[in-house]
Simulated scan of single mutants.
Amino acid sequence: MRHRFGRIAAISAAGLAAAIALTSCAASAPTDGGGDAAPSEGAAELTPIKLQLQWLPQAQFAGYYAALSQGYFEEEGLEVEIIPSGGDIVPQDALANGDVDYAVAWVPKVLGSIEAGANLTNIAQIFQRSGTLQVAWADSGIESVDDFEGKKIGSWGFGNEWEIFAAMAAEGLDATSVEIITQSFDMNGFLAGDIDAAQAMTYNEWAQLLETPDPETGELYTEDDFSVISYEDTEGAMLQDALWADTERLESDAEYAETTVKFLRAVIKGWVFARDDAEAAAALTIENGSSWGPSHELWMANETNKLIWPAENGIGVIDEAAWDKTVAGALAAVNEQGAHLITEEPPATAYSNEYIEEAVASLEEEGVDVTGADFAPIDVELTEGGQ
């Protein structure tokens, strides 16, 4: 169950800074002088759309910022406002309440909301693979989920913990056999020795560790200093970043359904941009407010691409087997307090490939590479503190 990560060659912070300058120019360039990004009639004719993210601006969401900055939303006749969340907004709640038109959220979290009464549909499964890790020290003896028993296991909570409990259930481990430690969105508790195995995302907290100097050597930690368990390699793996829409509006509002396809077309092109130019994508997220340093942000863009590409059936198309595995894990997961994530199968309306398949097919006809079959990640050199 060990998941090894290739060690890191070099893309410079200077190169990323240059990319920031270029993307800033591109984003501010007029689009009425021969470009096709905006309708000649002007922005007044664009359909206003609100997209709710599940966290702050960062390269985890690079495709959406690329679609905005490169004019892909405008090309589809949409004026999109991207709304971040620092934990103060629950994306699926904002969508269910009618505050936004679409939302980015993890599948298991929304399954819980659907069982509680939310009427939402997964219209595009952007992340095809789980990016969650559990990280321990190399000499800890923690090599797999089987080794969690009796250990202090870190988790952020807020619905991020369900992969842990699903993986434990698959191994026949009772949730009460571990001590769940509430973990901040950093690795400080782990580095301080308060946590035996800390939760981390491949694109964020894992990089935070590799950006940290070992106090004994003064050199940055390397992957050999840690034991890394990838939930993608376990039965607890669950689908993560997906795009959600209002089910009732999809069924009753033809204009909303049509807009959904246009929205997805632009999103696909945004993620293709992020795939083909990770440096520019990272620069865009910094430009849009990310507080991460350039090497960290570039790492995030690269690792996010790995969760999306290649997409055998087309980016965003929901794989039935992966969906069923996520539902099975959600049904099996029981936390340390005995609570269940869900207790019954979600309704058939919980996901639909209708809109994403239409968007994928139309772009494929236009020559857009919607599968990324030849995708190869770049090499990124992390620096101290991600700068």
Rank of each mutant, 00 (worst) to 15 (best):
R2S: 10
R2L: 09
G6K: 08
S12T: 15
S12P: 02
A17E: 10
I20K: 14
A21Y: 07
S24F: 14
C25Y: 13
A27R: 12
S28L: 12
P30S: 14
G35L: 14
E45A: 15
I49F: 03
P57T: 12
Q58L: 14
Q60S: 11
F61L: 10
A62N: 02
A62R: 00
L68G: 01
E75G: 15
G86Y: 06
G87Y: 08
G87R: 13
D99H: 13
V100G: 02
D101W: 02
Y102W: 09
V107A: 08
E115T: 04
E115Y: 03
A118Q: 13
I126N: 01
L133N: 04
V135S: 01
A136W: 00
W137I: 03
D139H: 07
E149G: 11
G150V: 10
K152Y: 10
K152Q: 11
K152H: 12
E161L: 05
E163V: 11
A166T: 04
A167H: 00
A175N: 04
S177T: 14
S177H: 07
V178C: 03
I181S: 03
Q183S: 10
D186T: 13
L191P: 02
A192M: 13
I195H: 00
A200Y: 00
T202K: 06
E211G: 04
D214R: 10
T222F: 07
D224Q: 14
V228I: 15
E232I: 06
D241S: 15
L243M: 12
A245P: 01
D246W: 01
T247Y: 08
E248P: 01
E255S: 15
E255H: 12
A257Q: 05
V261Y: 04
A266Y: 01
W271L: 03
A274K: 00
A281C: 05
I286L: 12
E287R: 12
N288V: 06
N288I: 08
G293R: 05
H296E: 05
L298N: 00
M300Q: 14
N305G: 14
N305Q: 07
E312T: 15
E312Y: 08
E320Q: 14
A321F: 07
A322M: 10
V327E: 02
A330I: 03
I342C: 05
E344H: 08
E345P: 02
P347F: 07
A348H: 09
E354W: 02
E354L: 09
V360P: 00
V360S: 03
L363V: 06
E364G: 06
D369E: 09
V370P: 00
G372E: 03
D374I: 05
A376C: 04
E381A: 15
T383G: 05
T383C: 06
E384S: 15
Q387C: 11
